[in-house]
């Protein structure tokens, strides 16, 4: 089980604060509606979760895709 950032897309305000702090450029706001995490790049450092003003990002465990 790996840990990754997970965005509550329903409550995300698409401000892009998470994009600015991500050290891996793993998060983006492609269509201006909500942030999307590239789980192949995410190292679950939690910087985005800490920065997010709407507190909609959590670091959660995800099962490895095989």
């Amino acid at each position: 089980m790996k840990r990754k950032a997970n965005v509550n897309t329903d409550l995300c305000v698409a401000c892009g604060c998470c994009v600015k702090v991500c050290p891996k450029s793993a998060i983006s706001v492609p269509d201006g509606v909500f942030a999307v995490v590239d789980s192949t790049l995410c190292v679950s450092c939690g910087k985005c979760a800490k920065e997010c003003p709407a507190s909609v990002i959590d670091i959660v465990g995800v099962h490895d895709e095989k």
Partner: peptide, 22 residues
């Protein structure tokens, strides 16, 4: 009181542009 960019959560321009993008 809250996070540095708390304004972004209820900024009317931000809410409006998000609705336009939606």
């Amino acid at each position: 009181l809250f996070k540095p960019r708390s304004w972004c959560v209820y900024c009317p321009m931000g809410t409006m542009t998000q609705l336009i993008c939606k």
